[in-house]
Amino acid sequence: MARGGITKKAVEQARNALLARGESISIDAVRIELGNTGSKTTIHRYLKELETEDDKTALSESLSDELIALVNQLSGRLKAEAHQTLEAQEERHSEQVTAWQERFEQQSQELLATQAHVEELLQTLKQAEQQQQQLQETNHRLEVDNERLQSDLSSQKQRLSEKDERIASLEEKHTQAREALNHYRDSVREQREHEQRRYERDVQGLQSEINELEQALTARQHSYSELTQRNTQLETQLTELKRHYDAVYQESRSTDAQLSELKQQYDRLDNRFVSVTSELQGAQDKQERLQTSLTELTQEKQALEHESVQLNAVIATQKEMIEHWFTSGQLKTFSPHGES
């Protein structure tokens, strides 16, 4: 339907009227004949179609029946080949679009899998960092405890050294007392022997001196007993200090073993942290490559879709042209008497 209600039939009638009057055919003349209505473009198109139909009619009237049959056969073959070509192009285009869509889906799935793996690695890295922080805090506490134990151990060693010095002093005093006692006993024995010889002469004096010596000896023995008891107490304290020193030493060795084990665990976690960081970097690089590939595929898909739209438009135009050509340009078959 043309604009303004102009039809091909009306244009044909106006052209025939101008021909009947012997006037030349033009767009303006036809438009004036139509009452100054209708688009010049539409009128021009209709005039071209009418001229083409006239040319085809004149050509058909001048051709023989055999040539018309040959032309109809060729036009049929041309139409079939054109349809086959269009179908093949549509099939190839559909296969290409399907392949690009499958590749796009595959790249999308790989990107999603990579993103999930990256999230898992990030979670693992976060856990490793938390464990590393906990180990650092534990290591710090153990180091503080170790320093405190080392300080206590030094203090105990100093106290033990002081005790040893006091024990050595007491032992020296004890030795001196024993030597003095031995010397005293020797002196008493000599004195007794001497007094024995003088016993008859000075028994009363000797008895008095013996009593005094016995009192002094008792006092010395009492002092010796106190020294012996004190020595026993010091030996007990020394034993307890040695036992405490052994316990502190064992605790220190256990703390050193724990520190060594924690340092080994810290080294393993640090190596794992480095490995996870490297793997995470690789996954991020892969994600960037996949993202770049996905972007390129998206652009190629858009270009392919644009090309598909253009190709579909071209195919539709070719179909329309072929159908229009075979519909409007189909040669007529004439009878031997020249009737169509």
Rank of each mutant, 00 (worst) to 15 (best):
A2T: 03
K9W: 01
A10E: 15
A10M: 15
Q13P: 00
A14Y: 00
E23Q: 15
I25T: 02
D28S: 12
G35P: 03
T37L: 06
T41M: 02
K48Q: 15
K48C: 07
E53S: 14
K56F: 09
T57G: 06
L59K: 13
L59V: 02
D65W: 09
I68H: 00
L70V: 05
N72S: 08
L78M: 07
K79T: 02
K79C: 09
K79I: 01
A80D: 05
E81L: 15
A82T: 13
H83K: 15
E87V: 07
E91A: 12
R92E: 10
A99T: 03
S108C: 05
Q109E: 14
L111K: 12
H117P: 00
T124Q: 14
A128P: 04
Q130N: 08
Q131F: 12
Q133L: 07
Q136V: 08
N139Y: 02
N146H: 11
R148T: 04
R148N: 07
L153Q: 11
R159Q: 11
S161I: 11
E162N: 07
K163A: 12
R166C: 03
R166K: 07
I167H: 13
I167R: 15
I167S: 14
L170I: 04
E171C: 09
E172K: 13
H174E: 15
H174P: 01
Q176T: 06
A177Q: 13
A180F: 11
H183G: 12
H183E: 14
E190K: 15
Q196A: 14
V203E: 12
Q204K: 06
S208I: 15
I210D: 12
E212C: 05
Q215T: 13
T218S: 12
S223H: 08
Q233N: 11
T236Y: 04
L238M: 09
R243E: 14
Q250F: 07
E251M: 04
S252I: 03
R253F: 04
S254M: 04
A257E: 04
Y266W: 11
R268F: 08
V274C: 05
S275H: 13
T277Y: 08
T277L: 13
Q284V: 02
Q284R: 14
K286T: 08
Q287S: 07
E288K: 10
R289Y: 05
T292L: 09
L294A: 05
L297N: 04
Q302K: 15
N312Y: 06
V314T: 07
E320V: 01
M321S: 10
L331A: 01
K332E: 03
